[in-house]
Design a protein around this nucleic acid. Structure first.
Lengths: 196, 196
DNA sequence: GTCTATAGGAGGATAGAC
DNA sequence: GTCTATCCTCCTATAGAC
């Protein structure tokens, strides 16, 4: 509780995840934070600015996390594995924020929307680069890199939607499953066999 | 334009897809339909009822489509292929409605939410049944059926989010790609190797 | 920094005429 | 069936005191 701004952000993450951005009012967030609604505006210019703050922070940390996962890993198959594992791991550990980042893009202003999509594209391109490299060196089967990357990222991101922290499987077990599934798909799965 | 109710529904599908359910007002829908907003309430009890109508219809038709795709197909691998192909095909052909059905669950009342989730669960269970059968007969590798089914369905559903009808790939080409990718994943992809 | 009070507007929904 | 008129609630955001 030391920092009011952090409290507001945390409460907003909880509520946006639970009820959705549009269904959550400034008044709800204020109540949850133990302040009056006018107090929110001392820290955030608008409700939309608060959403943007949450999303931007999540995207930045997602990217940093990926870079850390790839650091020092050189061989292409291992790099792909590390990337998928890291992606799933981050999405399950930071479930609420990732859920929001993937379902509330609608709430952003055009400018903020563009800023987030730009971050997302940069992130996707790292995956596409790995896939292209694996394909070029014959480690992965051929296939449409763009579509494959959408498929793989969506697949893994979806964990943030259904994952139950109290469930029977740990984050690491799930991340390994996805890692195996994706790598098998990439190695054997000739996705349409299209040249591009 | 013969049928006003259909016009309203069609306009609502367009707008919910384009701007989202919460950002679309009754007034927007009325304007698009060429009537006054009070006119909407002659056909639908509330905005939420209109959303529910769209979703329910989509889920029903999705299920019927799956059943038709499986009709007369007996061998398990072919059945799984037919199911995946049909799922992708339906999601790309009826892109807007499927987009809505997958992103606007938040807008439903608790009762309606339960009704839609029930339909979705029944649909998922058909896939899980196919996967279980394939696993039991040794055609597919072992793996966690529930998690695999989430993964596969999400993967394919995602097409409704990024698919561009004017793009370089046809619906059938994409459906085939996914079919191959998923089947390869199921046959070789030992998803964590968990017994269940 | 946080409060009280309120402006200002939008949007869902209804009443009742035609 | 469709329209006009309007109610009523809710919510974002701001002004200004403390």
């Amino acid at each position: 509780m030391a920092n009011t701004k952090e409290t507001i952000t945390d409460v907003a993450v909880d509520l946006f995840h639970q009820k959705g951005y549009f269904a959550t009012s400034i008044s709800d967030i204020a109540k949850g934070s133990g302040i009056q609604k006018a107090g929110i505006y001392y820290y955030f210019k608008s409700k939309e600015a608060l959403l943007f703050h949450i999303m931007m922070r999540t995207m930045d940390e997602l990217m940093i996390h990926l870079e850390q996962c790839l650091e020092g890993v050189t061989e292409i198959e291992s790099r792909m594995r590390a990337a998928v594992h890291g992606h799933v791991d981050f999405h399950l550990r930071r479930q609420k924020e990732n859920f929001i980042a993937n379902s509330e893009l609608r709430g952003l202003s055009p400018d903020h929307y563009r800023a987030i999509v730009k971050k997302r594209d940069a992130y996707e391109q790292i995956f596409q680069g790995l896939m292209q490299q694996g394909r070029d060196t014959g480690v992965f089967a051929k296939g449409d890199v763009r579509i494959l990357s959408y498929a793989i990222l969506t697949l893994c991101t979806a964990g943030a939607f259904w994952f139950n922290p109290q469930g029977r499987l740990s984050i690491d077990e799930i991340a390994r499953m996805y890692e195996d599934f994706v790598l098998n798909g990439l190695k054997h799965g000739d996705m349409g066999g299209l040249e591009q």
